[in-house]
Design a protein around this nucleic acid. Structure first.
Length: 129
DNA sequence: GTTCTCACA
DNA sequence: TGTGAGTA
């Protein structure tokens, strides 16, 4: 199945989505258990529609950007309810995440500078010996 | 192949 | 934030 075909189809088994996105079926069930996904059922078997697939894409993107499942869940739950509140929440979370990353970057730069200084001193001692 | 639950890192 | 194992 090509990506375009996957995009147009409306019914997916859990294994289809796991394969397409390179994640485990366990992870998909885990996201459902956490309330991020709510596939239909045929009997006991999950049936995912385009909507669920779209949500899964958002989940994976959120994870890649470093957001918790809780954050992503909060965001997704506002999709139907209140879109302007959703955008508001997003803006806040993004700002928070940026601040966190910038703090990490700053810490890393401090650590790198310190290590470089140690390296410099060590190299100088080697030259004398 | 799918489901669920429990233990575990 | 998931995985492994056992079950049906």
């Amino acid at each position: 199945m090509t990506r375009a075909e996957a995009d147009n189809r409306d019914l997916y088994a859990i294994a289809d989505l796991a394969r397409e996105f390179g994640i485990s079926t366990r992870a998909i069930r885990f996201y459902e258990a956490k309330g991020l996904l709510s596939p239909e059922r045929v009997g006991v078997t999950r049936v995912f529609r385009r909507r669920d697939r779209a949500r899964l894409i958002l989940i994976l993107r959120g994870k890649r950007l470093g957001f918790s499942l809780r954050d992503i869940s909060d965001y997704l739950s506002l999709y139907d309810a209140d879109r302007s509140q959703q955008v508001h929440l997003l803006a806040g979370k993004v700002e928070e995440r940026l601040a966190s990353l910038e703090a990490q970057l700053s810490d890393l730069q401090t650590t790198i500078a310190e290590l470089r200084e140690i390296k410099k001193l060590a190299d100088e001692r080697l030259e004398k010996a």
